[in-house]
């Protein structure tokens, strides 16, 4: 009410807010821009249609062309066995590869949380240990992690295991460090008071410390989820023969931009949805603090 008037006229400490309208308009503007670009590039260069395919091409051959990423085993014949490109086959291909990517990303992420959280809590309880681990993590943090996915393919072969191990490796440190730091910055009375009530250290860890650090951990869990999705993409881009990242790499190899855009869009949608889910769940868990 008054805030609206106030911000419009005086605006000393004006705060902007996100608007769904703007989000929608931005997406529409992006589509229009793409179409204009494709017309422009198509008219001025000979290869233009391949470099920036118009939307109608993305929505037709860009989708049906995905059929050859279907690897069989789910009933219908693959394109290698002679099947024609079609929308249902493309849908199967997207489903198959999305599933592979989803499983890898989530398995790796959950594993990283399941390892990083308890180890972080344990490490934080002993100060020298926490400082030692911070020292190691401070170094590992600077490694070009995304570029190290080929290593995991060398160790585990081009398998889902390699991908999961890589995702876990990438996200584990984020969770571990954030947990240790969050415990470290808790006010002392919080753990001293329950100790006077006679709770055991384990009980204190689970019933007091864990809920208390959740608000601080929320950002870290989001960051770790983002890292997990970047890692799964990196591992699929180099070496592994299934998943959306592999499909993306294939479209790059043959410069099939229309299909590339569709695959990238599907991947973006999945990772966006996953992060929203993490955000939602952690928000539920930390509801008491808001």
């Amino acid at each position: 009410m008054i805030e609206d008037v106030g911000t419009r006229r005086f605006g000393v400490a004006l705060r902007t807010r996100p608007r769904n309208r703007a989000l929608l308009a931005g997406v529409l503007a992006g589509l229009v821009l793409w179409q204009l670009l494709s017309l422009l590039v198509g008219a001025t260069t000979s290869q233009g249609q391949n470099v920036v395919p118009p939307l109608q091409q993305v929505l037709t051959t860009g989708i049906t062309g995905l059929s050859h990423f279907y690897k069989g085993g789910w009933g219908p014949e693959t394109t290698l066995q002679g099947a024609e490109d079609s929308v249902p086959l493309a849908a199967l291909a997207v489903l198959q590869n999305s599933l592979a990517t989803l499983v890898r990303a989530w398995a790796g992420y959950l594993l990283a949380v399941a390892l990083g959280l308890p180890i972080g809590l344990a490490v934080a309880a002993v100060r020298p240990l926490r400082q030692a681990v911070s020292g190691i993590a401070g170094l590992l943090r600077m490694l070009p992690v995304l570029a190290m996915s080929p290593l995991f393919a060398l160790w585990f072969g081009a398998t889902t295991t390699a991908s999961i191990a890589f995702v876990t490796f990438g996200a584990f440190w984020v969770v571990l460090l954030a947990t240790a730091n969050a415990v470290n910055s808790l006010p002392a009375p919080l753990t001293e008071y329950p100790r006077t009530l006679g709770l055991t250290p384990l009980q204190i860890s689970i019933r007091i410390v864990l809920p208390a650090i959740l608000p601080a951990l929320r950002g870290a869990l989001m960051l770790a989820a983002g890292t997990a999705w970047a890692c799964v993409l990196a591992s699929e881009l180099y070496g592994i023969q299934s998943g959306l990242g592999w499909a993306l790499n294939q479209t790059l190899l043959y410069t099939l931009v229309d299909q590339m855009v569709v695959v990238a869009g599907v991947f973006a949608g999945l990772s966006l949805a996953s992060l929203r889910l993490v955000n939602c769940v952690t928000g539920r868990l930390t509801g008491w603090s808001e």
Binding site: M1, I2, V5, G6, R9, F10, V12
Partner: peptide, 21 residues
């Protein structure tokens, strides 16, 4: 101080309406 716009009414400082701090 001019930090808040009244919902209604006017404030004059030295005869001039207050428009911001």
């Amino acid at each position: 101080a001019g930090l808040l716009v009244p919902t209604e009414g006017v404030i004059r400082a030295q005869g001039k309406p207050v428009e911001g701090p």
